[in-house]
Simulated scan of single mutants.
Amino acid sequence: MKDINVQTPPTAPRNKATPPQQSACHLLFDYKPSSDGIDLNLLILLHGLGDTKTPFSALGPKLNLAQTATIAVQAPQPVPYMEDSYQWFPSFDFLTGNLLPPSNPERMKGMLRTRKWMAELLQHMVSVCGFAPSNIFFFGFSQGGSVALDTVLFGDIPNLGGVVSISGYLLEEQEKEKKVGTGYGGYILVTQGEKDGLVGSKASAEKKFKAIQRFCSPSAETSQIFITNKDHTMAHSEGEWRVIHTFFSKYLARRNIQLENMSDVYLVNP
């Protein structure tokens, strides 16, 4: 018969994360601790092309995710000739005003710069603020969703928790990148409007989603949900938000505070 080793459980982890310091990061952000006082998870919110962090800073607390702090990050580059408008990578031709094609190298140069600064922010959130990489999730719209996917699939911080991308996919140029190790093994949800004229047809969206899956490991859990009567817009219907909240409720970590506070609980090891 094996011996039984009974131990007093280790001290419960701290509830509050150390707030991030803006001076340590290139990217501007608004950080808000969890409303329930337990900063176990971190949700990083990334806006779309031409927006700012302000609407997403307000969105974070409204999501009301248990034990989850939020940080809304602003894209680093102003959109030329537009006030209070930012982009994660160069998107427009200065002369014509048209969107840059995938053949333009400035798009990928900008994405790589953003990837570097996202890694800087994440390293700060992990090493200084105390968040575990597996408890860090992303919520991004359009171009912000592309950055979120880039960060988890190709970034320097491995084993990040997951991504919710609203109508955001990898850049076409990124399909040529090399798979990192065995691939990303976390959780990805992409919601897509059936009438999204920017992404294109349903077949086009499904092809873009398969490009994401090629950089994931067999253990990754990925899903693409099409929303009826929706164009290229942020989530706004009850049905889409239900899908998003179901994703977070399933994959965000949760501490059992009631169990931690019980004085007669012991750790039993064979």
Rank of each mutant, 00 (worst) to 15 (best):
M1L: 02
K2I: 09
D3T: 08
N5G: 03
N5P: 01
P10M: 03
T11E: 07
T11G: 09
R14N: 06
K16A: 13
K16I: 06
A17T: 08
A17L: 05
A17I: 12
Q22L: 10
A24R: 10
C25T: 10
F29T: 03
F29K: 13
P33M: 06
S34K: 05
L40M: 05
L43Y: 00
F56H: 07
F56A: 05
A58L: 09
G60R: 14
P61A: 04
L65W: 00
T70E: 01
T70Y: 05
A72D: 00
P78M: 01
V79C: 08
Y81Q: 11
Y81L: 10
M82E: 11
M82L: 11
D84G: 01
S85R: 02
Q87Y: 09
F92D: 11
D93T: 04
G97H: 00
L99S: 14
L100P: 02
L100D: 02
S103F: 08
R107I: 13
R107W: 04
M108C: 02
M111H: 05
L112Y: 09
M118H: 13
E120F: 00
E120A: 03
L121K: 14
L122R: 03
Q123K: 15
Q123T: 12
V126T: 13
V126W: 05
V128A: 15
A132G: 06
P133N: 05
F138N: 04
F138L: 06
G140D: 02
F141T: 15
S142Y: 09
Q143N: 11
Q143L: 01
T151A: 04
I157C: 01
P158I: 05
G162Y: 03
G162N: 02
G162M: 00
S165V: 11
S165K: 06
Y169W: 12
Y169F: 13
L171M: 07
V180W: 01
T182A: 02
G185H: 02
Y187S: 12
Q192E: 08
G193T: 02
G200I: 08
G200Q: 07
G200R: 04
S201H: 00
S204P: 12
K208M: 15
R214K: 15
C216F: 00
S217R: 04
T222D: 06
I225N: 11
T233S: 15
T233V: 15
G239Y: 12
W241V: 14
R242F: 06
V243P: 00
V243A: 12
F248C: 13
Y251C: 08
L252D: 03
L252Y: 06
R254E: 12
R254L: 14
I257N: 03
L259Q: 10
E260V: 11
E260Q: 15
M262H: 11
S263N: 10
S263V: 12
V265I: 15
V268P: 02
